[in-house]
């Protein structure tokens, strides 16, 4: 079984501070984290490898070269190989351009399955898995909450999905693109102490556009079919709250407030 895991590092949204005067989010110093749903996908793949050690997992990420320490840690956690697709010309790519770059690389690989998260925390469009599946001509399912089975000999995956109105179980022909929903039970394994400084450079490949050979007009802003015109902080209306304590006085005041606003109708 060969699994490709698509991974993205995103800023920790709760660490973004809001500058009220300038109406901007301060993104510097915000910790980068592996997108939680991508981590669930990767943890699922590593779980399969634990049960079937001949499973081969390659992680693929599009990121600046600064992501390298994070990628090295993936190998120390049990990923067989990491491919970093990195080129300054990718900056500003929308999902159309991004999925075409990923498809260009994935098209050169032999695999049974692509694992990824359904959404990312930053842009959160959730479009890349579907656009990638379309370019590669593969079946797709996202919002997966459980992988029931994945058998390369049978050429099928069975997955559970939570839809709007129903829980569904699907059988999907391989190769396919599978997008996972966040699941806190599936955690990445810790790095073993003896592996903390293990040299893993031979397991990492960095690919620029010179290797992928896409036309420059297909990359970055030039290659994108959407453009962000404005990015505004959705500032919350700061209120001036009444401060109370959990004591008889506080509870009486809340009670009277509820009564006055009509929330205590019999």
């Amino acid at each position: 079984m060969r699994i490709l895991c698509l991974l993205k590092w995103v800023p920790d949204v709760d660490q973004l501070r809001y500058d009220r005067e300038r109406n901007i989010l301060i993104r510097e110093n915000a910790r980068l984290m592996l997108n939680p749903e991508d981590a669930t996908a990767m943890a699922t793949a590593l779980g399969l490898k634990r049960d079937a050690p001949d499973t081969y997992i390659e992680a693929v990420s599009m990121a600046p070269r600064g992501a390298m320490p994070h990628l090295e840690d993936l190998v120390r956690r049990g990923i067989d190989h990491v491919t970093l697709i990195s080129d300054p010309r990718h900056a500003g790519s929308d999902t159309w351009a991004t999925s075409r770059v990923l498809a260009r690389y994935l098209g050169t690989r032999d695999f049974d399955c692509v694992f990824c998260g359904t959404h990312t925390l930053d842009g959160g469009t959730g479009q890349v898995p579907a656009q990638l599946a379309e370019v590669l001509g593969l079946p797709l399912m996202v919002g997966i909450c459980a992988l029931v089975k994945l058998i390369s000999q049978e050429g099928q995956a069975v997955v559970d999905v939570e839809g709007e109105t129903a829980m569904m179980r699907f059988s999907i022909a391989l190769p396919a693109v599978l997008g996972f929903q966040y699941s806190p039970e599936r955690k990445l394994p810790y790095i073993q102490y003896e592996d903390l400084n293990r040299d893993v450079s031979s397991r990492i490949t960095v690919l620029g556009n010179d290797k992928l050979g896409m036309d420059e007009s297909e990359l970055g802003l030039k290659g994108s079919l959407t453009q962000v015109r404005r990015l505004e902080v959705d500032a919350l209306e700061a209120k001036d709250p009444v401060l109370l304590r959990v004591d008889q006085d506080g509870i009486d005041k809340v009670y009277h407030w509820l009564e006055q606003k009509g929330f205590l109708q019999p």
């Binding site: 800023p11 949204v13 973004l16 404005r230």
Partner: peptide, 8 residues
Amino acid sequence: FSGRMLAT
């Protein structure tokens, strides 16, 4: 960004 920004 988890609803903290609005993109046009």
